[in-house]
Simulated assay, not measured.
Amino acid sequence: MADGAGEQPALRDEPASWPVRSSGDLHRDGWVVALREDRIQRPGHPEEEPFRRVVLEHPGAAVILAVDDEERVLCLWQYRHAAQTRFVELPAGLLDVDGEEPVDVARRELVEEAGYEAQEWTHLVSTYSSPGISEELAHIYLARGLREVGRGDFVPAHEEAEMETGWVAFDDMVEAVLDGRLRDAPVVIAVLAAHARGLAGSARASR
């Protein structure tokens, strides 16, 4: 918070890196994420003891708000054990292949999870899920010009084996987000970003 004594910082996130005095693995088994403990030194204060922070290492993700010509959103209903909730979600996938661009991950996941390809891709926003503890950066895209192609040889397992899909009017999604019926962060961010930019639903029709 600015205290009035100096110029307020610029309204943008900026890369920064504080000195790490030591680092060690807390958990690493090769499945998606790992936990790391860092001891961090506040810059310019060598007299202070380094403080401990736990970092959830995560490769990042791509999320797809797929909207058809009737302004309906392709939704997934999927159970998430950590939250003990069956969420309404959007197709998404991990950036777990080195060098693969987020939009290419989005293209692949839209086929694998939903069986659709899209002709038009618009980057809506990229957002950190919980930067106090996690490295995860989600890249959210709007996909249009949808064409059903099937899921190929992809075979769902575990939670995905129970996943259901369906189409929901975009304006109904906005209402459900605003009244708290939808709480999955990528869904909330994708829907509100597209709505604010007039890219879907009645807001698009009125442009």
Results as ranks from 00 to 15, higher is better:
P91E: 01
A157G: 15
E120D: 15
E101R: 14
V174M: 02
I140E: 01
A169K: 04
I64C: 12
D171L: 14
A2F: 12
R107I: 02
H195Y: 10
V55S: 09
G132C: 03
L94F: 13
D68L: 06
A203Q: 09
A16R: 05
L11N: 10
P102V: 04
R72L: 01
Y128W: 12
P156G: 10
T122N: 03
I64T: 08
V103Q: 13
E117W: 06
D3Y: 09
L182F: 14
R147L: 14
A114T: 13
A169W: 00
G145H: 04
I189V: 13
E109W: 03
L95S: 02
S126D: 15
C75Q: 03
Y116H: 09
A2I: 07
L56N: 08
P46N: 11
E175G: 12
E148K: 13
S130H: 13
L199K: 02
E14A: 10
I189C: 02
W31L: 13
G180T: 05
A82C: 05
R12F: 11
I189M: 07
H27F: 15
W31G: 08
H45S: 14
E164P: 04
A82D: 14
R39E: 14
E148C: 10
A190R: 03
R108S: 14
V32A: 14
Q119R: 15
G93K: 06
E37V: 12
P19S: 09
G4K: 00
G150S: 12
S202C: 08
R21S: 12
V97M: 06
P156R: 10
A83E: 14
I133M: 13
A176P: 00
L110W: 01
H58G: 01
G30S: 08
E100I: 14
G132Y: 02
E47M: 11
T85V: 01
P43D: 06
S17I: 04
A193E: 13
E57L: 12
V149W: 08
A143Y: 05
A196H: 06
R151D: 06
R108T: 14
Y116N: 01
L137D: 03
F51Y: 15
H58A: 07
L146F: 04
V111L: 05
V73W: 00
Q119N: 10
E109P: 00
L26D: 01
R207G: 15
A176F: 00
G44M: 07
H158T: 12
W18C: 05
I64A: 03
A194S: 03
G198H: 01
R28K: 11
V125P: 00
R52E: 04
P43Q: 11
V73T: 10
M173G: 02
V73A: 04
P43V: 05
G24E: 14
R151F: 05
A203N: 08
A190W: 02
D69Y: 03
A114F: 06
L90K: 08
A83N: 07
V177Q: 03
S206N: 09
R80P: 00
A34R: 05
M163S: 02
D13I: 09
M1C: 09
A83V: 08
D172M: 03
E112S: 09
T165L: 15
D25P: 06
F87W: 15
E70V: 01
R72C: 09
D184R: 05
R52K: 10
D172F: 05
A185N: 06
A106F: 05
L94M: 11
G145E: 05
V67S: 09
E49L: 12
R183K: 10
D184N: 11
Q8T: 13
H139C: 01
A138D: 07
R147F: 07
